[in-house]
Design a protein around this nucleic acid. Structure first.
Lengths: 148, 148
DNA sequence: TATTGTTATACTCTATAACTATA
DNA sequence: TATAGTTATAGAGTATAACAATA
């Protein structure tokens, strides 16, 4: 196995570990990955139409209906009327939903601190630079694929 | 946002990009993520009982029944009798399944090469060392959680 | 005419519980 | 008695297609 493959495998391993940390959060909150993802988007974008959520999550509008139904049932969001467009609804976090979103962000930051907080700055910078260059290289590959 | 959080976000971003590359493979092969995962395990372990697959995939035996049903229907694996235990079946790749597994490994290696192949060795080494130390730190965190 | 969201339908992945055949 | 796999049942996530209300 080449070094490049070993490094990729380690990146994927780290990703599965982070995923397992998120799974713990989901278990404790009684939520699922797609619902947490939706809450995360709400936290970043604020109250949103279901169309906007469908685009952000890269799923169909029909799918968002189901996710929002579940989050309404669990008390995390409500459907509010859109102020100017009577077709649309604004999915809005409840008090409980807002608390969950805050806890999610805190959990994420806490994990980051525990994982990278005490890495020597110059090594972390090298790490981050290689990571950034890799992400850019990937974007190039994807663009080439799409143009094919 | 702290530097640690930015780095974690970039790791997750890279992970989603790699995931999208896998999704392309799945689309072209007419497969799903859990089925590809099962094929990957078969590629590493060789013909396996469904119990062994359930453990390797961390799902219930019932779930493996469904995944194997799908892969039998698509012509990627067969259920062969276990040579010594008549209760068990050996899930075995077909010629087509073996070809898919080879393509999967090649696609993975190819991606690794394109992502990391031309990074300067000393920078890649630093990258990998930080990555390895992070994974170890994570294992410690998880163990502490489990003991709690 | 186009857009927003829902109803109808279907498939995949996932789980628990009960059951059959075999060890 | 324990183990391997399946049947029965249920819920979540995903999709496409057709539809109603509104823009």
């Amino acid at each position: 196995m080449t070094q490049a493959t070993e490094v990729l495998d380690r990146v994927l391993h780290l990703a599965t570990l982070v995923q397992s940390d998120l799974a713990r959060f989901e278990r404790e909150a009684g939520l699922t990955t797609p619902r947490v993802h939706l809450l995360w988007v709400l936290g970043e974008a604020g109250p949103s139409t279901q169309q906007a959520l469908a685009r952000a999550l890269a799923v169909t509008p029909r799918n968002v209906t189901g996710l929002v139904d579940g989050l309404v049932a669990s008390g995390h969001v409500t459907r509010e009327p859109h102020p100017t467009d009577r077709r649309a609804t604004l999915v809005t976090p409840t008090t409980q939903g807002a608390r969950t979103i805050r806890e999610l962000v805190e959990s994420h930051d806490d994990l980051a601190r525990r994982l990278f907080g005490d890495v020597a700055p110059e090594r972390l910078t090298t790490f981050d630079e290689v990571l950034g260059a890799t992400v850019e290289r990937f974007a190039g590959l994807m663009a080439a694929e799409a143009a094919r």
